[in-house]
Design a protein around this nucleic acid. Structure first.
Lengths: 248, 248
DNA sequence: GACTGTGTTCTCCTATACTAAACAAGTGTT
DNA sequence: AACACTTGTTTAGTATAGGAGAACACAGTC
């Protein structure tokens, strides 16, 4: 019943590592990859040509790059997500009404994944990106509606790593904050993820299960005080409620 | 110099096949996958647990599903694409002005990949999806600005598979059509991809290289005659020109 | 024309990814 | 409840095939 962290298929690990490396570097050559990872050139070559014949990688004039195959898979899985389907139009309205950045987030293991965003300019995280649940308003909103045991397990397993000096790192603080989030159906993030961003979020709870969260964020100097705590918070929580109804 | 179709890393092939299978089935169990592919249950299990620890697959109450990790990669690579960057706002305008579906397509090997779309309802292909170059207006627009040798090689390698009974399947017809596309900077698709859709497309050519194409499509009964051949065609080709300038 | 830098190919060997069968854990049926 | 009949997981054990490493080809540079 312990964690068997043994990765069985090592070749898969290598291949996916190559994919991630190609992503991070926005294309790379064989030797560059072989040096970066600790694998021989020939191994990298084998994986690359395999991935190429499978259509995930292409070789544009010398450097290997990822193809848009990932876009198809990524978009497709998002499109099928019922929460995304239900939230789409509501997020759009929210962005228009708040004149700020509106997000939809869903939980995935220990992370809050940004499935949708409208109105973004220089938001710290892009669509498809993720943050640890405790480090953002939307994540906390989700965490608040999980069982106490589940929260304990989360903290035990992943800790409370700080993203800024305002991130919640104390277990007791988190607990009491989650309680108040549960009471008011609203979570706030005042520079806990990015010092210059503030955010209000409300969970989407279906059948007792927090399946996502809606959030609106903006630069700290604009999004604060009454505008954050009353105007934005109200719109966010009513948007979440609308989505919940849609999902029944 | 022949085609070495030998896939070297078989484990990678298996893993990616599992990913595709999971995508097609929208989640599946071990035995279901093992039956569908021709692999033993335990092998599938190994690959799945590997992909899970790597974060590409999750196990929601019994069935394995893809995570949104692919969204991050897919979105990221799209975001970095200079053509996409340059075209984004132009596509939006185009959708608004034509009141139809506006697309951005880029070539990837033998396919035209849909990188962007606005105004779609039931379009035959979704974002991230792809069509063989000869089977859609946008693809033909791209093909038209490749060298004659490249076109010959394309036909030789991939043939001219029909998608509908109007798809170009004859080499000579294709050749002459490409010539007229090159002259007018506009390609049409009258039910060649989907019998109920018509489409006008214009290539984005940078430095003699067709790096993408803009297209507008609509249902055959709406998008036809003068509206297709003059109004839409004009807007499409000027949008493509604007994008070209942006890319210089 | 020697010299770095690529990517590709080759061969040998061992790590390793499969198969098969047994095991566990749920589900639902009588 | 005990029953078969699912499912997923685990475990040996063997054949396979993936990886190391050097040699090769090819390009560009001085």
């Amino acid at each position: 019943m312990g964690d068997t962290d043994t990765i069985t298929v090592q070749a898969t690990e290598t291949s996916m590592q190559i994919v991630e490396e190609l992503y991070d570097r926005d294309g790379a050559g064989v030797t560059e990859l072989a040096d970066a990872m600790d694998v021989s050139k020939s191994a990298v070559h084998n994986h690359l040509s395999t991935l190429r014949t499978l259509g995930y990688v292409k070789n544009t004039n010398g450097t290997y790059e990822l193809t848009h195959r990932f876009l198809r898979i990524g978009f497709g899985t998002r499109e099928r997500n019922p929460v995304y389907q239900a939230a789409q139009s509501e997020i759009r309205k929210l962005a228009r009404n708040t004149n700020a950045v509106a997000n939809l987030v869903v939980p995935e293991n220990a992370d809050a994944v940004y499935l949708h965003r409208i109105g973004a300019r220089d938001h710290p995280i892009s669509i498809g990106g993720s943050v640890k649940l405790h480090a953002a308003a939307a994540g906390k909103a989700i965490l608040a509606f999980r069982s106490a045991d589940a929260v304990d397990e989360y903290v035990g397993r992943h800790g409370l790593d700080p993203k800024t000096d305002r991130t919640v790192t104390d277990r007791a603080t988190l607990r009491s904050e989650l309680r108040s989030i549960r009471d008011r159906n609203i979570a706030f993030d005042r520079g806990e993820l990015d010092p210059d961003w503030q955010c209000a979020a409300s969970p989407v709870v279906v059948d007792g299960d927090p399946v996502g969260a809606v959030s609106v964020s903006g630069p700290s100097d604009e999004m604060q005080g009454k505008r954050l705590e009353e105007d934005t918070a109200g719109l966010v929580s009513s948007a979440a409620k609308t989505i919940e109804l849609e999902l029944l």
